[in-house]
Design a protein around this nucleic acid. Structure first.
Length: 532
DNA sequence: AAAAAAT
């Protein structure tokens, strides 16, 4: 039996207390050198005390609009951040002109930063005021949060309280983040303070921003991050590991938004995609590398990536990675290559649960860490309406059909009523998808037997509402943040209650309400009562 | 028993 969240909290408090007690001052040195809180009345001014960090010096006069063609007054690029521009592989000089000119001389590939805000979410029409931000902030009030450890930095209530820099603040506005989510309120000050962090929280709670903001801000402020020669070996400053390719892609997309026009370069590497393109991307320079463990080990063995310069390490969905048997790869990456040890680098470990194996990982990877547990947002108990229906195996398809027809009849537009159907097997996914299509319901499927290209296409097609039904195996169960999933159907029940919770967590995201239906029959007897 | 992940 897995430990519950409450157990995790309890267990972790002892663990965290024990691990921090003997090592209270280590790892704090970097914290002192970072700049800190700026009171509200001093914000949006040039921080005169810190001339060498000019990123923060100008808030551009123009409203930035699309991000392109905006730097009229500011010229963030040409000016003060030359060190950075050079380092990340942009040619220096003529910056402003080149930037505004999309067909300019050097816009092949990604040499030009693509505006990440022209994203897929625009494909789905926004409804109503509340949805514009994508997050229902009211749902975040009264989320239980626990922290433990030595000298926990106080939480913040607004982004403005945190000195993230103007470029990052602008991206936060572009993302329409109004105020920090609970995990952000606590985790960002902890990370900005240079402390290691063990956090129990789910994706969709704002976790990605919680670890990206401090990393990006830290890289921007780091005077020591001088330009390095570009070459065959890439030297990322930050590494983000995640269990599945799609989750890595998603983190990469988000991180690119947060890093837009900061000069911080984010690159993603995962399997199933041609490695050459990823190698080229790495050669152009990388600050933050987002990767799945297998592909990263490959890159390390080819000596195309060195972890020598790593200052920030984030492990996302750590429990999932262990479940999937990645512990050897992860230990190899973190402990047996050239990555700086705990205390020298800064490490953030995120996990939905906190069982023994994760506790061990935490004590091995983290130094003097702070434990943070954030209650679930849109948890199974409040925002997701759950139904369990007894359906014989042979009736499942027609029953699903009834549900889909009812949904249609309720006048939900195809575009917004995305339905995610979980099945047990890859074969089952294929055949159900086929059957749905045959019966007039545009569906697609995602599972581990499909090529990466097919998987990515399926996800895009689903998100855009093109095929508003996605049949999935557990590859999609955790972490994926798909907006507008109105209904999760557990066509086949998962074997494990944790998986169930994660699956239905695909709906009711970001504080919106959702519906979850599970088909239950005699085959699932083992789930009906705790089988221990 | 199944799923995921490097080729």
């Amino acid at each position: 039996m897995r430990s519950s969240w409450a157990d995790s909290v309890a267990a972790a408090e002892t663990a965290a207390a024990g691990s921090t007690a003997n090592n209270s001052s280590a790892g704090n040195n970097s914290a002192r050198t970072r700049s800190t809180y700026v009171p509200p009345h001093l914000r949006n001014r040039a921080p005169s005390s810190d001339p060498p960090a000019p990123v923060y010096s100008s808030s551009t006069s123009g409203t930035d609009g699309s991000g392109y063609g905006a730097p009229a007054g500011g010229n963030r690029w040409g000016g003060p951040r030359n060190d950075y521009n050079n380092r990340s592989g942009y040619s220096s000089g003529g910056r402003g002109g080149g930037w505004n000119n999309r067909t300019g001389g050097w816009d092949r590939g990604r040499e030009q930063e693509v505006n990440p805000f022209a994203g897929i979410e625009n494909a789905v029409e926004e409804v109503g005021e509340q949805e514009n931000s994508g997050i229902n902030f009211d749902a975040y009030e009264d989320i239980p949060v626990e922290t433990s450890g030595d000298n926990v930095p106080p939480a913040v209530n607004t982004f403005a309280e945190i000195d993230l820099g103007e470029a990052l603040n602008q991206n936060i506005r572009r993302c329409k983040y109004v105020k920090p989510t609970p995990v952000q309120r606590h985790a960002i000050p902890i990370s900005l303070g240079g402390r290691d962090l063990m956090a129990c929280a789910q994706t969709g709670s704002g976790k990605t921003a919680a670890f990206c903001f401090p990393i990006i801000s830290g890289i921007m402020k780091d005077q020591a991050a001088q330009r390095r020669p570009r070459g065959r070996v890439a030297f990322p400053l930050a590494l983000i590991l995640s269990p599945t390719r799609e989750l890595s892609m998603q983190i990469h997309e988000e991180a690119r938004k947060f890093a837009y026009q900061t000069g911080v370069k984010v690159v993603v590497a995962y399997g199933g995609a041609p490695i050459n393109q990823q190698l080229r991307e790495l050669e152009r320079g990388v600050d933050i590398l987002v990767a799945t463990p297998g592909r990263l080990v490959d890159l390390l063995e080819r000596a195309r990536v060195s972890l020598e310069m790593i200052k920030y390490l984030a492990l996302d969905e750590a429990d999932r990675m262990l479940d999937m048997g990645f512990e050897p790869q992860i230990r190899k990456i973190v402990e047996q290559m050239d990555m700086p040890p705990p205390g020298v680098r800064q490490t953030m470990l995120f996990s939905a649960t906190f069982p023994k194996e994760i506790q061990r990982l935490a004590s091995d990877f983290l130094a003097s860490y702070i434990f943070l547990a954030v209650g679930r947002v849109g948890s199974s108990t409040d925002l997701i309406v759950q139904r369990v229906e007894f359906v014989h195996e042979s009736d499942k398809r027609s029953h699903l059909m009834d549900l889909l027809h009812a949904q249609k009849a309720n006048g939900v537009h195809g575009k917004q009523a995305l339905t995610l159907v979980f099945v047990e097997t890859k074969k089952g996914a294929d055949s159900l998808e086929h059957w749905l299509c045959m019966n007039g319901f545009p569906a697609t499927t995602i599972h581990g037997d499909r090529t990466q290209q097919e998987r990515e296409y399926a996800l895009r097609s689903f998100k855009s509402g093109n095929t508003p039904i996605l049949v999935a195996t557990d590859v999609a169960a955790r972490g994926l943040d798909i907006p507008h999933v109105a209904h999760v159907v557990n066509f086949d029940l998962p074997n494990d209650i944790d998986d169930y919770v994660h699956r239905i967590g695909r709906t009711g995201r970001a504080g919106k309400s959702g519906l979850a239906t599970a088909f239950f029959n005699e085959n699932n007897a083992s789930l009906a009562r705790p089988a221990s």
